[in-house]
């Protein structure tokens, strides 16, 4: 198993190289001339040229990329044009906030959607099922940043229960986490329901009943364990949705995470910050995907067997 993890980590390297190359290339074509931005409007052409030289902007593209990647290994991804702060450091400072928000959102989503998905599957084609599915349908149809705005209107401005933005302790986490978690909950509810319905029809469920298992035991011991496999896959696939959702929720709630960082950097045309953040985000996604795969293996002995054979 450890061998497998190592192998997967090694396999990440080309992925990161390709992704970062594409992003670096695309971003180097945009954002205008950073030297002009730094020097300001009043600078003379000589000053600008000097800044270009200092930043290494006159080097050929591949050299710049190689330098950038070499820097990345040591945690040096350049400086922000705007704040003059270290990109890697800034990202790492913001990362825990986004992970906290994303984690809370996934937690809320799982806590809501697993019971709801199972419940609707067991009561298939009754009004309970319909009600649950209507909830899920609304959840997937709603832009989550809009949900965030609605939550602010209701819970902050009208009721005054929760803060409308910033990071000021646990209470300030609730609304952003619900915002990100709601759409996710809707999606996982649908997956859980269909996965559970699929499992409920399986022969081994009849075997379990014929053994004398109580209905509860049939569903939770035999059913859920099998249904979880596609559910975990679905959650894994939605991780990019969590990041996307976080970017928007952080904007709506002024939550000091990566999303807010990217948004601010884009609006200020802070190219090194944007490039660095997006590259680090894709690395983060790769690691999350790896973790999801490992969780998957934990629940499915067939996959686990495959891994131990390979590794």
């Amino acid at each position: 198993m450890i061998k497998y993890i190592l192998k997967r980590l090694v396999m990440l390297i080309p992925v990161i190289l390709v992704t970062s190359f594409l992003i670096f290339w695309a971003m180097s074509l945009t954002g205008g001339d950073p030297a002009l931005q730094i020097a300001g409007d009043k600078a003379t052409p000589e000053q600008v040229e000097q800044i270009r030289e200092e930043l290494g902007l006159n080097d050929p593209f591949l050299v710049r990329y190689a330098k950038y990647m070499a820097g990345m290994v040591t945690g040096d991804m350049g400086q922000s044009y705007v704040t003059k702060r270290d990109v890697f450091k800034t990202f790492m400072e913001r990362l825990p906030n986004t992970l906290m928000l994303g984690g809370a959102a996934v937690l809320i989503a799982v806590l809501v959607s697993l019971p709801l998905g199972i419940y609707t599957a067991i009561h298939q084609n009754t009004w309970k099922d319909t009600a649950g599915m209507i909830f899920a349908l609304f959840g997937t149809s709603m832009p989550n940043f809009w949900l965030g705005l609605m939550l602010i209107i209701i819970f902050s401005l009208t009721l005054g229960w929760l803060p409308s933005g910033g990071k000021t302790g646990f209470a300030s986490l609730i609304l952003p986490a619900v915002t990100v978690g709601f759409g996710l909950a809707a999606l996982i509810t649908r997956t859980t329901r269909s996965s559970m319905l699929d499992v409920l029809r399986q022969d081994y469920m009849t075997t379990a009943r014929a053994k004398g298992c109580s209905e509860k035991r049939v569903i939770y011991t035999h059913g859920l364990k099998n249904a979880l496999i596609p559910i975990i896959t679905a959650i894994g696939l939605q991780m990019s949705l969590v990041i996307t959702g976080s970017v928007l929720a952080e904007t709506v709630f002024s939550w000091p995470g990566i999303g807010r960082l990217v948004y601010d950097s884009i609006s200020k045309r802070d190219t090194p910050m944007v490039t660095g953040s997006i590259i680090l985000c894709s690395v983060l996604m790769c690691i999350i995907n790896l973790v999801v795969d490992l969780i998957y293996a934990f629940f499915d002995p067939r996959i686990k067997a495959q891994y131990s054979k390979k590794g």
């Binding site: 992704t19 992003i23 695309a26 971003m27 074509l29 945009t30 954002g31 696939l237 990019s240 949705l241 990041i243 996307t244 970017v247 928007l248 990217v262 884009i266 944007v274 997006i278 985000c281 894709s282 996604m285 790769c286 995907n289």
Partner: peptide, 15 residues
């Protein structure tokens, strides 16, 4: 697929 599509869109739109 693994990169959040909002990030991709950001890159493409800024390009």
């Amino acid at each position: 697929y693994s990169i959040p599509n909002i990030m991709t869109a950001v890159v493409i739109v800024s390009l």
